[in-house]
Design a protein around this nucleic acid. Sequence first.
DNA 1: GCGCGGACTGTTATCGATATCGTAGGCAAT
DNA 2: ATTGCCTACGATATCGATAACAGTCCGCGC
Lengths: 349, 349
Amino acid sequence: MKQTRAKTGKSPKRATTMAEVAARAGVSAMTVSRALKSDGAVSEETRSRILAAVEELGYVLDLSAGALSSKRTGFVAALIPSINNSNFSDTARGITEAIEGQGLQMLLGYTDYDMEKEEHLVRAMLTRRPDGIIVTDGRHTPKARRMLQSAGIPVVETWDLPADPIDNVVGFSNAEASRALVHRLYQKGYRNIAFIGGASRRDTRGADRRLGYKRAVEELGLPVGRTISFGNPPISMEQGGEAIVHLIEQWPDVDAAVCVSDLSAFGAIMECHRRGWSVPGRIAVAGFGDFEVSRCSWPRITTVAVDCRNIGQEAGRIMLRAIDGVREDRRPGPETLIVPFEMIEREST
Amino acid sequence: MKQTRAKTGKSPKRATTMAEVAARAGVSAMTVSRALKSDGAVSEETRSRILAAVEELGYVLDLSAGALSSKRTGFVAALIPSINNSNFSDTARGITEAIEGQGLQMLLGYTDYDMEKEEHLVRAMLTRRPDGIIVTDGRHTPKARRMLQSAGIPVVETWDLPADPIDNVVGFSNAEASRALVHRLYQKGYRNIAFIGGASRRDTRGADRRLGYKRAVEELGLPVGRTISFGNPPISMEQGGEAIVHLIEQWPDVDAAVCVSDLSAFGAIMECHRRGWSVPGRIAVAGFGDFEVSRCSWPRITTVAVDCRNIGQEAGRIMLRAIDGVREDRRPGPETLIVPFEMIEREST
DNA sequence: GCGCGGACTGTTATCGATATCGTAGGCAAT
DNA sequence: ATTGCCTACGATATCGATAACAGTCCGCGC
């Protein structure tokens, strides 16, 4: 006895409109609008009548229409290098958590670690007229930078400390973190420390970590140039396995490896198991990012932890403040928030 | 000599409008619109004049305005249980890949494996008037189901084979896959096979896998009831480690464990290493999902692989066809696509 | 020379909500 | 009784694009 079956044949899809709700409730559309955003002055009685009409008609507010008149879309664009990297998906989750209660919706895009694609995505996002935009990375193509600057909306750059920020920043120094890690390994007695990382300049955070490593070995007077590079990001676990084999073949005296990410560190360690090389006995291995696999693998992996989700939450919070500022025609100055990183020593070093 | 510097003090954010571009190019707004979507008939000369004006003014098309008149927002909503699970983020990536070339933008939401939250998200998404919606899971609250049915847009349910589909489906039988896995373990000689999975009914795919396991041990006349349950999804690696310890304490004769996901399988195996239990010597362990960690860990983990990204791509493709159908007022019938799964035997069993 | 069709461009109405201003009525202060 | 103010609501203009229709111009065939 399905009575609600749609009429076949002619477009059964016309969505209910606010005017229809208004008609049914015996009020004007404006009053419906006010009732639905529960900020306007509407008497309790009228409101309940309207809500009843909404319920009966199955009406759902159309924000895409409201956006046009209110000049606020309620979108926050967020660009991350990859959705498949849990560090970045954690950040995306953090952003969502920070903004979703405020009626904002995230528009997510993946740059694939590619500045050209980032530029493309920035343009695509701006066509949706977001109220703000959050990007990962502090480096952009000149065009992308110009678009971000002249879009007239708040911008937050995350995961980096750009030399010349566009607007707000939530990040940390990847180079410093990496440098600290090498120093710690030195303290523990390792003297021949290598670096395993991606080959391309696309992953700028990876490049910064390599830079920090380089500085550290120079400062400490350790043998330099012990670096293995593999392909483009996203870095895979498998690549870490291959890399450590090359590493040990090329420099048999190496006693520790710093990997650009926990994923490659994990791959390296598992390959060591397979070949009967003890970790950290034969070689110590450290990673970056405190991925779940590092807390759980055997041995557990020494790493640098940053609170990725918190980066997202903080970026979201700054965005909220900035958007509120724009609304009230008060432009808060740019904020820069440096989030802490923590070295976590585990059994792999 | 920055002449384009915005006037300070008064709202420097007014975005350029199509009318301004039109004025500068000496044409009407309509012609600009046609030139920008490169479908309409515009002479080459006019088009290049318009594109020059666009460039000079840094104009970016406003789709949120266009959506109102064209009645197509260009959004495809996608709901996944979690962005932090690589299976689902792979599916999200597949969806993006399928639709991004067609001028569509994905609106992503996370249900946290919670049907109530799914209902909430469906409502929130409909507020954006997407041209279609893709959901994970074939079970929904009655309200959510009603909203999906009456939204008048194409729906694709993925990752499951719902008994009573709303519209289109791209999925597979989790129960069958799990059952096949147990049968394979039986063939290899294991006779005391346990199941490790989540405790809650929230993860319906996990529940289906448990069901398949149960059927299989009954069919095979193996000891039943050897199941360990831990907390709510998302399942963590750590939980797998704890679970296998309980398992072996409770039923010391168990010789194989099927885990609800590779992540818990991995955690279990690493815990076995720590305790000196050989895998698969003391106990075989199998997972589900073919996560990267399973291909790379030591031992490599036997698992059931489904092409998650492909699920997303196929869902996206079906969505494209359905949306085109709606546009041309021709409603293609619902499609159901059953994607294959593959058992991958590795060293852990 | 006339009519016709195609290529190109402009005009007007419209999408569905919200901003803004206006109005009616109620109540208290003067 | 007048004024002032607040609450609750309606009328209208508007946001920025696109759909639909209406020209205009030009070339070509007969």
